[in-house]
């Protein structure tokens, strides 16, 4: 079983200049290792939609890799996105699912079906390739080759659950961060700073 910290470290080691879309517990650990905050989006305030945002980014910037650090509970809420991604088949999308079998943010309640094998589901939907890792060494040694291959790829990582006792950080500040990150990413990807204020947080 792999820890969140190790998984995020290993992914970041092979990141290159990829965009990283994160959600839930992964965001916390990703922010500790990422050296490219302008290429990061933490999908707070919109649970389950990381895979769909990542698809849009991948289709919109086909010359840049997009990593989606998704989770099992989130993907179950947006399971159809597996078929949508497979249908569009973006070669630059790497869909990484952190599978701990629980809703960690809310204290560790089990997801409806903790035994779902997301790599198999993605394979059945038509992803170009799929992988499943439950030990750190295999993930570390194999990931660089996977991220050099054509997507869409789904990489399922069996992680040790870390149930939180204090609940999700859903404050005005955390929700307000996402619009700012999105604007910073658009500026980085397009070279233009033309997305001005709008909405309640900005």
């Amino acid at each position: 079983m792999i820890t969140y910290a190790d998984a995020c470290r290993i992914i970041n080691d092979s990141r290159g200049d990829a965009v990283a879309v994160t959600t839930m517990t992964q965001t916390k650990y990703w922010n500790q290792v990422s050296q490219e905050p302008d290429l990061d989006i933490g999908i707070a305030n919109a649970m389950s939609k990381a895979s769909s945002v990542a698809l849009g980014l991948a289709l919109g910037k086909p010359d840049r890799s997009v990593l989606c650090l998704d989770s099992d509970g989130s993907l179950l809420m947006n399971f159809g996105s597996l078929a949508t991604i497979a249908g569009m088949a973006p070669k630059n999308l790497y869909h990484i699912v952190f599978n701990n079998g629980i809703y960690a943010i809310t204290g560790g309640q089990p997801v409806p079906a903790p035994g779902v094998q997301y790599a198999k589901a993605a394979e059945a939907c038509g992803y170009a390739s799929t992988y499943r890792f439950d030990d750190t060494e295999s993930l570390d040694s194999t990931l660089p080759r996977i991220l050099a291959s054509h997507g869409p790829v789904l990489i399922e990582i069996i992680v040790k659950g870390e149930p939180q006792s204090e609940g999700v950080d859903q404050t005005w500040e955390s929700n307000a961060k996402m619009p700012l990150q999105l604007r910073a990413l658009r500026k980085r990807l397009t070279g233009t700073d033309d997305w001005f204020s709008g909405g309640p947080y900005i």
Partner: peptide, 24 residues
């Protein structure tokens, strides 16, 4: 114009958000 078919309507806005951030 590229058609992007989604499996459920709730995917449409997030996909569009990603496309817009990418400059589309």
């Amino acid at each position: 114009i590229t058609i992007v078919p989604v499996s459920r309507e709730g995917e449409a806005i997030p996909v569009a958000a990603g496309l817009f951030v990418a400059g589309q």
